[in-house]
């Protein structure tokens, strides 16, 4: 799939999740029944356009409630989305991911892909998931820590709401200033680095990433067709080598590698390709089951 088709799908997904267009003009949020269902991507439910609930906000609110209950419903929905699509949600359905993709298309002399700390910073999102989304909201009641101190989607929602709601604008203080700084850093970094929030900070990515391994929608690399040209790993914005690990937890399934592969060795979809013995490019017989990314 080429980039243009992906942008069209991302635009439609963003519009569908923010279909309450009236809210952008009135400064009021949607309050219908669909707000009881979590959307798969990061989309703050305080955004004037949002017609669904943010899964991370709902999870933290459930964990930080005075009367503690295990949030079966939200965890079940997250597990369902992750098992169905894995991080395809990040690549195609997440509105904040889409915003970062658009920012990265802005021409800028410095575009960073590989840097020293990158490998270690990738673990930060797992730490944030455990600390800010799970542990702290359980310990300190009525405080969704990730939403309160870090979530850039909420800050965007606040900015959009304040255009039409002067009372909100007057209530903003130090916390809002901090959140605007965080948002600004993420957006500026997004011009230089592809999807910095998804790579390093997003707890949703930390939930969906490991589910890439078992998700119904998956990627496969046919070793008998792969000529090890390296085009797939060169084009990957998330710095994944799909020939080594087609279902890496870091892969957001943007499908650029599938598009670039000259021999169509990479494929993505729900149906698994039947395994047959085919001669490889070196003329040898490839044993059955030599599909990388396939157990």
């Amino acid at each position: 799939m080429d980039k243009k088709k992906r942008i069209v799908i991302q635009s439609i997904a963003t519009l569908l999740q923010n279909a309450n267009l009236k809210g952008f003009f009135t400064g009021k949020i949607y309050t219908g029944q669909s707000k009881g269902v979590c959307v798969p991507g990061l989309n703050c439910y305080s955004c004037p356009g949002a017609i669904g609930a943010c899964p991370l906000g709902s999870l933290q609110n459930a964990l930080s409630a005075y009367k503690f209950k295990l949030p079966y419903y939200v965890v079940g929905l997250l597990l369902f989305f992750g098992t169905l699509l894995g991080r395809l949600i990040c690549g195609f359905l997440c509105p904040f991911g889409f915003l970062q993709d658009l920012l990265h298309r802005i021409p800028f002399p410095v575009k960073l892909k590989h840097f020293r700390l990158d490998k270690y910073l990738r673990y930060l999102k797992y730490i944030l998931l455990v600390v800010l989304v799970i542990v702290l909201p359980i310990c300190v009641k009525m405080t969704p820590f990730f939403c309160k101190y870090l979530c850039p989607s909420g800050t965007l929602a606040g900015i959009l709401l304040s255009f039409r709601n002067s009372a909100l604008f007057q209530a903003y203080g130090k916390l809002f200033t901090w959140k605007v700084i965080v948002l600004a850093v993420i957006l500026v970094a997004g011009v230089m680095i592809a999807r910095p929030f998804c790579k390093y900070l997003c707890p949703l990515g930390a939930i969906y990433g490991p589910l890439n391994k078992v998700s119904l929608y998956r990627m496969e690399c046919d070793a008998s067709k792969c000529i090890s040209c390296g085009k797939c790993s060169a084009v990957c914005e998330m710095c994944v080598d799909p020939t080594k690990d087609a279902n890496s937890a870091e892969c957001i399934r943007c499908l650029q590698c599938v598009h670039e592969c000259p021999t169509k060795a990479l494929r993505a979809g729900i149906k698994s390709k039947p395994e047959t013995s085919k001669p490889s490019h070196e003329g040898e017989k490839v044993p059955e089951g030599r599909m990388r990314g396939k157990d």
């Binding site: 979590c38 943010c54 906000g57 609110n61 405080t143 929602a157």
Partner: peptide
């Protein structure tokens, strides 16, 4: 979830 999401989350917006 509906009860929370149908109100503006003040913490979320800062």
């Amino acid at each position: 979830v509906l009860a929370k999401a149908a109100k503006v989350c003040l913490e979320c917006i800062g």
